[in-house]
C-alpha cells in the first residue's frame, strides 16, 4: 500500500485551473520529485497535500486515511511535515528554538502544566532541546544553535527549515524547492542531507527546479505542466519523455530536437 495516494485533485482560482485532476502515489521509503515549469501548479499541489489549501475535487489519502478535509496541524501531528518555498522561519528565535518549535507536534505539555512548571514538562523540555541539537547537527548547523534565524545566510536557512520539519518526526517530508538559491556546494550538501533523512526512515516528496539535484536524488518523478500531470516515472525515462521536453523547451524547439 502506498503511503500517500493523490487522486484526481483539482484546485481552481477563478478561471484558472492551477491543479487539474492530478493523481499519483508515493511509496514508503522513496524520494519522489515533482517538477514542472513555473506556474505548473507545484506549490498549489503542495499546499493541498498539507491542508494549507483545499481542493475543489479529489482526495488525498495518507496511510490509508482520507485527510483531504483535515486541518493543517492535525496532518502535521499525523506525520506529514513540510518546508516552504519562501522560508517561514521564526526570525527572532534562535536556530535551536526554531527546531524546538517543530517538536510542538510530538510533545504534549499544555498551558496548565506549563504554568505550574510541573517536573515532567521540564524534563520534556530538556529532551526536546537535546533532540533538536541532534537534528541541527544532522543538517550541519550545529554551530549555529544560538544564532537568531534572521542572522543566518540564505542557504543555511533552508537547512534550518528542514531540521525544524524533522523535529515533528515526519513519516512523510514535503520539501518545496529546497535548493532554490543554493550554490553548487550547498546543493550537494543538501543531497547528502536528503539521503540521511530518507535513511532515518522518512519518505520524501520534493518540489524542485534544480534538474541536477532532481535527477540525482529522486527515485521517481511526477511532471506537471499547466496544472496537469504530463508524465511520471524514474529519472532516466523522464529525461527522454517527449512531452516533458516539449513542456520545458516549448513545442517548436521540441520539434527541432
Amino acid at each position: 500500500m502506498s503511503l500517500l495516494e493523490v487522486r484526481d485533485v483539482t484546485r481552481r482560482f477563478g478561471g484558472l485551473t492551477a491543479v487539474d485532476a492530478v493523481s499519483f502515489d508515493v511509496h514508503e521509503g522513496m524520494i519522489k520529485a515533482i517538477i514542472g515549469p513555473n506556474g505548473a501548479g507545484k506549490t498549489t499541489l503542495f499546499n493541498v497535500l498539507t491542508s494549507f489549501d483545499r481542493p475543489e475535487e479529489g482526495t488525498v489519502r495518507y496511510d490509508g486515511v482520507d485527510i483531504t478535509s483535515w486541518r493543517a496541524h492535525h496532518i502535521v501531528r499525523r506525520g506529514i511535515a513540510r518546508t516552504f518555498q519562501n522560508t517561514e522561519l521564526f526570525e527572532e528565535m534562535s536556530a535551536l528554538e526554531n527546531v524546538m518549535a517543530g517538536a510542538h507536534a510530538v510533545t504534549r505539555s499544555g498551558f496548565l502544566a506549563a504554568a505550574l512548571r510541573l517536573p515532567w514538562t521540564v524534563r520534556e523540555q530538556r529532551e526536546v532541546a537535546e533532540e533538536s541539537g541532534r537534528l541541527l547537527r544532522l543538517v550541519g548547523l550545529g554551530e549555529w544553535a544560538d544564532a537568531p534565524a534572521a542572522d543566518m545566510p540564505h542557504g543555511l536557512r533552508r537547512l534550518l527549515e528542514i531540521a525544524r520539519a524533522l523535529a515533528t518526526k515526519p513519516r512523510l517530508l514535503l520539501l518545496d524547492e529546497p535548493a532554490a538559491g543554493l550554490n553548487i556546494a550547498e546543493t550537494s550538501a543538501l543531497a547528502e542531507a536528503l539521503y540521511r533523512i530518507r535513511d532515518r526512515g522518512s519518505t520524501i516528496v520534493v518540489v524542485e527546479h534544480d534538474m541536477g539535484l532532481v535527477m540525482e536524488v529522486s527515485d521517481e518523478i511526477v511532471v506537471l505542466d499547466r496544472g496537469c500531470k504530463i508524465a511520471e516515472g524514474p529519472p532516466r525515462l523522464i529525461q527522454k519523455d517527449p512531452a516533458v521536453i516539449a513542456a520545458y523547451l516549448g513545442e517548436e524547439e521540441a520539434d527541432e530536437l
Binding site: E97, S109, A167
Partner: peptide, 30 residues
C-alpha cells in the same frame, strides 16, 4: 505563572505564531 509559560512549549508556540503563522502551522500548532 507568566514566566513559567513563556519559558515553556506554550511560550515557544506563542512566539512562533507571532513570527510566522504558516511556519507555526507547519510545526503542528493549532
Amino acid at each position: 505563572i507568566a514566566s513559567n509559560l513563556v519559558r515553556s512549549r506554550a511560550g515557544r508556540a506563542m512566539l512562533a505564531l507571532h513570527g510566522s503563522e504558516a511556519g507555526a502551522m507547519s510545526c503542528g500548532m493549532d
